[in-house]
Each structure stands twice: as structure tokens, then as C-alpha cells.
Simulated assay, not measured.
Amino acid sequence: MSIGTRVKQYREAKNWSQEDLAIRLDTTQTTISNIESDKNIPNSLLLKKIADELEVNLNDLYDDKITNISNIEKNDGVVNTGSGTVNMQSPELLEAILKNQEQIAKLMEAQSKLIESLLKK
């Protein structure tokens, strides 16, 4: 089952419209529609926000299988990438990814403000 399908299931279980979820996430209904129809896959930061709003575990939203990634074998939650082994169910890994995404978002915001100030000059 895809991430989009799971988001839709959990949203509907709360009797929320796409617009309701979009407002809670400070995004658009179109964004939610695109996620639910698998046209877009949310980044890890947005996916964490979705999980928080829907009151589900982040892992509950992930697809059952890894797709479109070459040279990866998945066994019992461990992925062999050819250059090492990673436990994909590691809470530490997920937290590190989320912190990284938050830092990226802050840097992008700072960059946008800098560009805006330069354009005003």
C-alpha cells in the first residue's frame, strides 16, 4: 500500500476532508490530493507533520516495500546497500533524517529572506 493511500485512509478515519488536513498542515488541498493520488511523495519533514496531525506513527505511513532502488536487498528491516548495512526501522536514523530536513528548511528560509532583501535594494 502506498504512502498516499495510507494518508487517505487515516485522514478519512478522522472524517477530515483534504482541505481540513491541508489547513492543519499549512499547505493546499491540491498538495494533499497529489500526495493521496501518488502524484507527489512528501519529503520527510512534511510526512512527519502529516503523521503528527493524523496521530499515527511515522512508520505507519511508509510503503510496505522499497521500490525503484537498485542493488538493495531488504531482510527483516535491514537494507544492504552494497556499501554497508542500514537498519531502516531505526528510530535514530529517522530522527537524524528529520533533523536534517528541518535544518535544510531553515537554511532555505534564510536564503529566501536574503534574496528578498537583495531584491529590495
Rank of each mutant, 00 (worst) to 15 (best):
S33I: 13
N34V: 13
I35E: 05
D38L: 08
D38A: 10
N40D: 08
N40Q: 13
N40C: 11
I41C: 03
I41M: 10
N43R: 12
N43P: 15
S44R: 07
S44W: 01
L45Y: 12
L47N: 00
L47C: 07
L47A: 08
I50N: 05
I50P: 03
A51V: 13
E53N: 04
E53Q: 12
L54F: 04
L54G: 03
L54E: 07
L54N: 09
E55I: 06
E55D: 14
V56S: 00
L58Q: 05
N59S: 06
N59R: 05
Y62S: 11
D63N: 09
D64E: 13
D64M: 07
I66K: 04
I66Q: 09
N68I: 00
I69K: 06
I69F: 02
N71M: 09
I72Q: 07
K74A: 12
N75E: 14
D76G: 11
D76N: 10
V79Y: 08
N80C: 02
T81G: 00
T81E: 02
G82T: 07
S83T: 06
S83A: 08
G84D: 13
G84V: 04
N87P: 05
M88F: 04
Q89H: 08
S90Y: 02
S90T: 00
P91T: 03
P91C: 01
E92F: 02
E92C: 01
L93R: 01
L93N: 00
E95F: 03
A96N: 15
I97D: 01
I97V: 13
I97P: 01
I97M: 07
L98Q: 14
N100W: 00
N100K: 03
N100R: 06
N100I: 02
N100H: 06
E102K: 15
E102N: 12
I104Q: 15
I104H: 14
K106I: 10
E109V: 09
A110T: 11
Q111M: 08
K113E: 15
L114G: 10
L114N: 11
